[in-house]
Design a protein around this nucleic acid. Structure first.
Lengths: 264, 264
DNA sequence: CGTTAATTTGAATTCTCTCAAACTTCGTGG
DNA sequence: CCACGAAGTTTGAGAGAATTCAAATTAACG
């Protein structure tokens, strides 16, 4: 029943993205001091202009939009090993806030160093581009969930996604892990009211799928849950191997095999 | 009441992204023939491995997830001037399909050429990175809409977004434009049933905000609609000017002014 | 041990969907 | 030019689902 907290250091970046980052690159990007932000404080404000990117070393954060009517929508939960603020670095104003859920440790990233690297050559730039792609896939999946999945399925899907993402950065037990979200926050992620999420969690518990008590997610029947939620984790993995680049369709413009193209 | 169709050529790329792309770069990326895909056909299949990116010259397309239960969720509508398939190019499998809503003309992009360009130096790579950032912001906004906005507000917001996006690629009249979406498709985008969207459109018409008849969106009271929908188009604009890069926080790791950071 | 925050439950209201059917539009072929 | 069929739009009625409001219970923390 115990759920260990997990802490990711910069040195683990290599493992996190499944890509070997050579040390010099890493040093160019991460030579600054680690900064700490307390739980509940804001890392990047919505609309903020000058800002930088971070690598989240430890703790949980959230990407959140504040609406005019006072309600919030959490777009994504950020866990150790995630980048923060790079998937919107070319927008003048931050399109959403990033707030610390727990106390977090952040390694600032130099945009300048990042941009001066060749997108094709740098393994780190590679990892970062991949990371942006993943963030996009995660948010897309949330959109699908909120729009098309009922609360029970949606909640189960989210908990499985969390387990999967945490596993990638190394938790002890994928079936029993620490999750510092209050039911209010989780409801916010899922686009539900806290009251209704509470009822939904009870239903998932009664079905024997999963329990969520005292900040601990306890997956009791993973197989059943995956089946029930229609969970397919492929959107979280799937690094495009570098060699695969050569496998892309060449510059001749010929068909990629799906048979639908027609040259003008 | 007339709504003109709009057609974007490659030469307009300069204007579309608000960035001057020098000709040699453009040629390196777009030297292939334009391909045409018929309405209803698939441009990129969900899960497809080998694939390439495109610049959408004319016509409308949709990014769509197909769920196991047979239902679909359109993640985003793609209009002329948008890139297709580059915001997930580093994922092994396409996380969603891209399907032609109308007949479309596509300019294939060479990933190799794209990746061999320096992310920092190339203006086109710049435009593409910005484009990815925009796509992310658009999908985030959809997520917020589906999760937090009621159907009337959500629909009004979506129509205003369309107007704004089309304006950027040059339509004649932002208040009266061609929109080739059926109510089924629009309902799919908005996470509603077609029946309910139809009622919602009637309500918006009765309120005097907007009408949608025979593939034409007619905005009658833009100001009122913007107020009603809480629409803020800033997430669609906001190119980070190149000079602003130098304005980012330097490599010294000092505060960015929000006062929340604390060095370790 | 007291105070505050978070979770849990109930009941009523509101909203959205489903199902069913009628109507409209538009392209095709006779 | 009209008949026909298919696809899309519109409306109604009833069932089901989620929200709101309110209150009780439990957990967390100084």
């Amino acid at each position: 029943m115990a759920a260990a907290e997990n802490k990711t250091t910069l040195d683990q970046l290599r493992r996190i993205r499944g890509i070997d980052i050579d040390t010099s690159e890493r040093l160019a990007l991460f030579r600054r001091k680690i900064v700490t932000v307390e739980a509940g404080d804001t890392i990047i404000f919505e609309g903020q202009e000058k800002r930088r990117g971070y690598f989240l070393c430890s703790g949980w954060a959230s990407s959140v939009r504040h609406l005019i009517d006072g309600s919030d929508q959490i777009l994504d939960v950020r866990i150790p090993g995630d980048f923060i603020g790079i998937s919107d670095m070319r927008l003048k104003h931050a399109p959403h806030a990033t707030e610390a859920i727990t106390r977090v440790e952040l390694a600032p990233i130099s945009f300048r160093a990042l941009l001066s690297m060749s997108a094709g050559a740098g393994q780190l730039a590679e990892a970062i581009l991949f990371s942006i792609n993943c963030d996009m896939a995660i948010i897309s999946e949330h959109l699908v969930g909120v729009a098309r999945r009922n609360p029970q399925v949606r909640t189960a899907h989210f908990l499985l996604e969390l387990s999967e993402r945490l596993t990638r950065v190394g938790i002890d037990d994928p079936d029993c892990f620490h999750c510092p979200l209050s039911q209010y926050l989780m409801a916010d992620v899922l686009g539900l009211t806290a009251v209704h999420l509470n009822r939904t969690l009870r239903q998932l518990r009664e079905r024997g799928f999963v329990s969520f008590k005292s900040a601990t997610v306890d997956i009791r029947d993973r197989a059943g849950m995956i089946e029930f939620a229609g969970f397919d984790p492929s959107y979280l993995h799937q690094a495009q191997s570098r060699s695969a680049i050569s496998g892309l369709v060449g510059p001749d413009g010929r068909s990629n095999g799906n048979g639908y193209f027609r040259a003008n």
